[in-house]
Every structure is written in structure tokens, then in C-alpha cells.
Design a protein around this nucleic acid. Structure first.
Lengths: 143, 143
DNA sequence: GTTAATTAAATCGTACACAATATAATTGCA
DNA sequence: TGCAATTATATTGTGTACGATTTAATTAAC
């Protein structure tokens, strides 16, 4: 077996599938005026509002170089506010605005719309997710 | 179950894992002076040299907006040459240079080094790959 | 055989990613 | 207390991604 063959890589289908899934989100998220990474930040904030930039980064595995400009764009859209924490002025606290909270309702149907587009059964989706999460945990917890 | 919860998404672990795997490639590819997408293009060319930009794009699911600048960087590194096809002057033919062919030998150990870093058995790697490929085919062949 | 439609790359603009560095605030310790 | 190390975010530079448009070449229809 040729290990350098594109067909024999794990990395390539992972990379390509990730982009294809993002592409399937695009038309759905366009209606919310969100990009896919912005949507992930909103998902996190809808769960746990009032987080620091680094707390968001820890969860999404993104650094300030990515998040700072992204959060500024969400701020410009009026979905979040960014305020320096008074307890620790190094931290910037990200909070949902009313508009940001309202958007959650518009986003409520996105997951099932996507699952339909991907043609996955609940069981398939859960299986794949668990496998990916396990591998992800393995990679991020090892050091 | 809350379908908008980050933990219940398939998309997020897919996106995060893809970036984490790329991060694990980075130190290995640094020694070849390649980025991860550049490495994928080289993998394709090592298999089938002398391809048009769109043929590369069809395989990697990337468009000319991504590939044109990437290929120009590979050209600057002396790994490929870009020449207008004489048969059809709309096409640009990408060919490995001698240096590009030689690089293949240096890259030969990358796949197993990566598999070690990911701590995957052969069986796990093959299983995951097949699952991802199946889903990828489903998404790209449906239209 | 000319023109309209199509195709292949390139270009432009916006938005990530991420390494490296800078800046400012906080903590820890001698 | 005073200052060195650490921490949190911001900034800069490079390299993807990708939609939209442009340009040039080819094909198709008449």
C-alpha cells in the first residue's frame, strides 16, 4: 500500500468533509447573517453567556488572533457587547445583546435542517460525533 | 435534548478535529517548507503529475481563488512549474520540477509519523477514513 | 463562418486561522 | 514593597477559503 496516496490519507477526507459541511451550513447561516465560525461562537454564548475571549477560545480551540476580529464583527452587527472586566482589566467580557438572544430562536431549526441536508440518521450522527469527539479529546488532552 | 448545544453538534468536532490534525502536521511539514494545503497538492501531483488547475481543484474540492496563489507559491519554491497548455490555452498545466519529485522521498515518512502522533491503530485509521470518505462522497455526488 | 454560450484561470474582497510579537494588567516572590 | 514572571487581549503578517467578477479561449448554434 502506498501511504503517500491521497486516497489512503485520513487527513484529506477530514479536511475536505469539514469544508463541505461548512458549505452546507452556508445558505442556512446566510439567513442569520452569520459565518460558520461566528455561528459556533453564538452557540457557545447561547449556552453560557458572559464569557471572556479566552474562555471562548478554550472551548472552540481558537486564539485571540482569530477571535478578536470575529468578535468585533459580531459587535458591529449588534449581537454581542465587548466590555473590559472591572475585576481583571486584562479580560474582555463578551455578552449577548437582546438582538443576540433573539437570534437564537431564528437559529433553532438550523441543526435539523442541516441533518436533513447531510442525509444522516440520528444514530449515524451520534455515532460519528462520538467518534470525532473521542479523537479530539485524545489530541487536546494529551499534553 | 438541546439541539443547539455545542456538545450535540456533529459540525463542531469535525471542524475542530480537522484543525487539530492540521496542527499535528505542522511541525512535520515545516521541515519540508510546506503548508498543509500545499502538502495535499503535492500528494496529488506525486500520484498524477501534469494536471490542470481545475483537475487539482476537482480532486481537492478547491477553486481557482484558492489554488492560483497557492500554486504560485509552490512555483516560487521551485517545486512545480506552471505552463499554459498549447492544446487549450485556457488551461494551465502544473508539473513537478526535479526538486518537487525529490521532495517526495523526504515526505515518505510523514504519514506514519502522523499516525503515531494521533495514536491511531491501522484499523482505527482505516475505519475512520472509510466513514469520512463515505460521507464526503454522499455530499459531493448528490447534485 | 460569425456570434452567443460555456469554460478555465486569474483577480478582488471579505473572513478566517495561526505564529509571533506587543501591550497592559496581575501575580508571585525575594 | 518592588520588580520579574505570567496572563489576557490586541496587532501584524502570511496563507488559506470562497463568492463574485473579469478576461481570454473554445465550443455550439444558427
Amino acid at each position: 500500500m502506498n501511504r503517500l496516496s491521497l486516497a489512503n490519507q485520513v487527513c484529506f477526507p477530514l479536511y475536505a468533509l469539514s469544508r463541505q459541511v461548512t458549505a452546507h451550513y452556508r445558505p442556512l447561516l446566510e439567513q442569520l447573517d452569520l459565518t460558520y465560525p461566528q455561528y459556533l461562537v453564538m452557540l457557545f454564548l447561547w449556552e453560557t453567556d458572559n464569557q471572556s475571549v479566552s474562555a471562548i477560545g478554550d472551548r472552540l480551540l481558537l486564539d485571540s488572533g482569530t477571535l478578536t476580529p470575529l468578535l468585533k464583527r459580531l459587535e458591529q452587527k449588534g449581537l454581542v457587547s465587548r466590555t473590559r472586566s472591572t475585576i481583571d482589566e486584562r479580560q474582555v467580557s463578551i455578552q449577548l445583546t437582546d438582538a443576540g438572544k433573539v437570534l437564537r430562536e431564528q437559529a433553532a431549526t438550523v441543526p435539523e435542517q442541516l441533518q436533513q441536508r447531510l442525509q444522516l440518521t440520528d444514530q449515524q450522527a451520534v455515532n460519528l460525533r462520538d467518534q470525532l469527539v473521542a479523537l479530539l479529546n485524545q489530541l487536546t488532552n494529551e499534553e
